[in-house]
Design a protein around this nucleic acid. Structure first.
Lengths: 114, 114
DNA sequence: GCAATTGTTCACCATATGGCAAACCAAATT
DNA sequence: AATTTGGTTTGCCATATGGTGAACAATTGC
C-alpha cells in the first residue's frame, strides 16, 4: 500500500529504452551472463554496461559475479511495482467513469437501466 | 497484438518523472487548464509547459486551446499501452515459472501432485 | 482602451544520457 | 608463462533534459 514514489522514477526511466526493455524480456526467460546479453546489440560493451547499471539501479535486475563472468537475473517484484502504479491509476480512472456512468444514467430516466 | 515498440520509449519516459505522474493522476480525475494543473508545483510555467509537451508527445494527454486557456485531458489508451507491455512481460515470466513448476514436480515423484 | 490573466517563446545554464575508443584487470585456457 | 576471454574503467563527445528569467502575444474584464 505504502506508495514509495521515489523508485518509480528510476523504474520507468529504466523502461524507457528499447535496449533495456529487450534485456528485461530476455532475462524473463532465464538468467544470463553479460556477454550473452550484449550479443544481440550493436553497441560496445561499455555502452551496454551502462544500460545494465541503469537496470540494476532501478532494482529491475541484480547481478552477481563469479569468477570472471557476471550473471544477471531479473527481479519481477520491481516489474510488478511499475505495473502496480499503472493499475492504481486505471482504478482511479475507472472509479470516476463508473460514477460518471451512474450519474448519466440517473439523468436519463427514460432509458431502461437494464 | 502488433507491438509498436517505438512509442513505448516516449511513454515510459513520460512516466519517469514525479511531476508528470502527478499531472496524470490529476487528469484522471478530470480535465483541467494549464494554469490550474501547474499550481501545485514550484517551478515556473515554461518548465511546466515542457513537462506538458513531453506528456503530449507521448500521447498520454492531448490539449486544446480555446480563447486564452488551454485545456488538458488524458488519453487512457496510452496508459493501457504501458500497462499492456508490462502485463505481457509478466505473462512471459509466469508461463516460464509455471512450466518450471511442472518440471520440478515431475522430478519429485515422491511428493503428491495433489 | 487599459490592465490583468494565461500562455508562449527565447536565450541561457547545469547536469544527465548514450555512445565511442582505448587502456586495463583478472580469470580461464593452452 | 602466454594468450584469450569477459568484464571494467577512463576520457571524451554530442545531444537531451529540466530548470531559470525576461520578453512577448492574445484574451478577457473593467
Amino acid at each position: 500500500m505504502a506508495n514509495q514514489i521515489q523508485p518509480l522514477d528510476s523504474l520507468f526511466h529504466a523502461l524507457a529504452d528499447p535496449t533495456r526493455r529487450a534485456v528485461i524480456s530476455r532475462l524473463l526467460r532465464g538468467e544470463a551472463p553479460v556477454k550473452r546479453l550484449a550479443e544481440p546489440f550493436e553497441m560496445g560493451l561499455p555502452a551496454f554496461l551502462k544500460h545494465l547499471s541503469v537496470l540494476e539501479a532501478s532494482g529491475l535486475i541484480h547481478t552477481e559475479k563469479q569468477g570472471r563472468v557476471r550473471t544477471c537475473r531479473i527481479d519481477t517484484d520491481r516489474l510488478s511495482a511499475a505495473e502496480g502504479w499503472l493499475s492504481e491509476q486505471r482504478a482511479i480512472w475507472q472509479d470516476r467513469t463508473d460514477r460518471l456512468a451512474v450519474f448519466v444514467e440517473s439523468q436519463h430516466p427514460t432509458k431502461e437501466t437494464s
